[in-house]
Amino acid sequence: MSVRKTFAVLLGCGMILGTAQIQAAPTATMLADTCAGCHGTDGASTGPATPSIAGNSETYMVDTMIAFKSGERPSTVMGRIAKGYSEEEFKLMGNYFAKQPIAKTSQNLDAAKVAAGKKLFGKNCEKCHDEKGGLADDDSGILASQWLPYLQYSMVDFKAGSREMAKKMKKKVDKLNDDELEALLQYFASQQ
């Protein structure tokens, strides 16, 4: 990864030194501020459905935005917007949001489902979604306290095959029924 990063920096220098007309990239703050209209100030969404992006790792953000941009990951509006940015800009945004605290939400959840989800979590999810979905370093996207409708949409897309699952995840998801999956989503959403 560091090679890629160095390359990006060199590329950036070349652009700035080589052609006077090409302007500097917008700052990370400038770029990240454009996201706030839908994803909340500093990426902490007030919901009910648009996900918080605060606290995600830079790697997760960049990979996600590239997937939106190419259409590999389905979306309503995000793909159209992702097409307006370069990978370098995704990195700047990702770096900004990685520094923001994970957003805490208060949602109406079903206590019984949350409890059922808690039981399923350890065996099925914990290896990749560490710290109850609240660890950025696993590069799997912050699920802790995430808005439930977003988690539900994501699972619908995974199950429909329109969004690709990691092989390990697919194995687990294939074994779980809809009630169990819903319980897990509620459990992630409940984390404070």
Partner: peptide, 17 residues
């Protein structure tokens, strides 16, 4: 239907922004 949910989320987020 998702776009309606995202529209309402946009409203909440932009007004708090």
């Amino acid at each position: 239907a998702r776009e309606v949910q995202y529209a309402h989320s946009w409203f909440n987020n932009i007004t708090s922004d």
